[in-house]
Design a protein around this nucleic acid. Structure first.
Lengths: 198, 198
DNA sequence: ACATCTATTTATAATTT
DNA sequence: TAAATTATAAATAGATG
């Protein structure tokens, strides 16, 4: 969230990494602090930096929250074997259910992802909608296509400027008509491939 | 951070408290997620809600980070102990991690779903991809557009057949060129609206 | 390497639906 | 009552000193 959004992968540059970590870590703790105050929640945060240093936040304290976390399920000092077995069964059951849910969620995610790939590769997205369109929708689509064409033309211009040996005239869509193939030299392409969809 | 900054004290109103907690808690986890990814930090967050519910975030996992924390402090780990107690801790740890994984999977699913909605409603799909397209992709898109145009022409033909008083000739796209407005009588439409995007 | 500034993006309190 | 919207505040990537 700044001048632009950075890619969500580990920063290579060590200096930049340090700056970012130093800026973001206190903000995370502050956000947790506000949440704990405003909502009365008990929060603990443990952060191991890329260099192995431990930073921690706790409200009311790190140890109290971590202890609560550990105790809530683990260490009943006076508990019968039966209670333990029951607890194990309970947890195991929950575990099985969770694994099932997770598998389902992953399946759904995969399904959607696949379909999305199809959409991206332009395999099926133009089929369904049109059948259901009335004249009004078709006209609306026209507006979309105007924008689309402008973007494509712009992009084509950029690519032409990059590849063409001689300066090429800008492609235009007004009036609507055929765009002639350009006879300028371009690597790995013959002019016929430049008719596109105009 | 909204219409105005709220006072830094616990919210009285129970409904508002619930809303605020529900909004802020995922944001905190997301911020931690970004920090862990971008900086390669190991992070665990434990949150006990005002109602006693436990929410947790962990990267790479809650238990691994908490274990690391405990080991550094020379205390017994969450997942190491004997017999029943050990088994309970182990299962519980897996449970916590599963809940986290599930939450992450659901978030991803939601993201994709939202994007899919945009695609379906045709609000943005023609904007983003083009910038990243090379000549090869543009050519692939050309093929898509060929099919698309055929479908649109077919559909337009159907609608014309439905509305035209006199039979109209089929629109064609070969060769690529301007489709003339048809002068046949059609209800609620003037010929100019029929230039569409050809 | 560090501190400050600034243009953007993100978060969110209040509002509307 | 919950979900979407809006107006404002906070966070932050990159620029600048």
């Amino acid at each position: 969230m700044g001048r632009r959004r950075i890619e969500m992968k580990k920063i290579d540059n060590e200096n930049y990494l340090h700056v970012t970590f130093s800026k973001r870590r206190p903000v995370l703790f502050n956000m947790a602090s506000e949440l704990s105050i405003v909502c009365g929640a008990e929060i603990a945060i443990l952060v191991f930096s890329p260099w192995g240093n431990l930073y921690s936040f706790g409200s009311p304290s790190v140890t109290s929250v971590v202890d609560k976390f550990l105790n809530q399920h683990g260490q009943p000092s006076v508990a019968t074997s039966a209670t333990h077995r029951a607890r194990i069964n309970e947890l195991y059951g929950q575990n099985v259910d969770l694994v099932n849910d997770l598998e389902k969620a992953k399946e759904r995610s995969e399904e959607v992802k696949k379909w999305l790939e199809e959409v991206k590769q332009g395999e099926a997205w133009w089929e369904a909608p049109i059948q259901d369109m009335g004249l009004l929708e078709l006209q609306r689509l026209e507006v979309c296509m105007e924008v689309f064409k402008k973007n494509v033309v712009k992009r084509a211009d950029e690519l032409l400027a990059k590849y063409a040996v001689v300066p090429s005239p800008s492609l235009t869509m007004n009036p609507v008509g055929v765009v002639e193939p350009l006879a300028t030299a371009r690597p790995n392409l013959n002019p016929k491939e430049w008719r596109l969809w105009f």
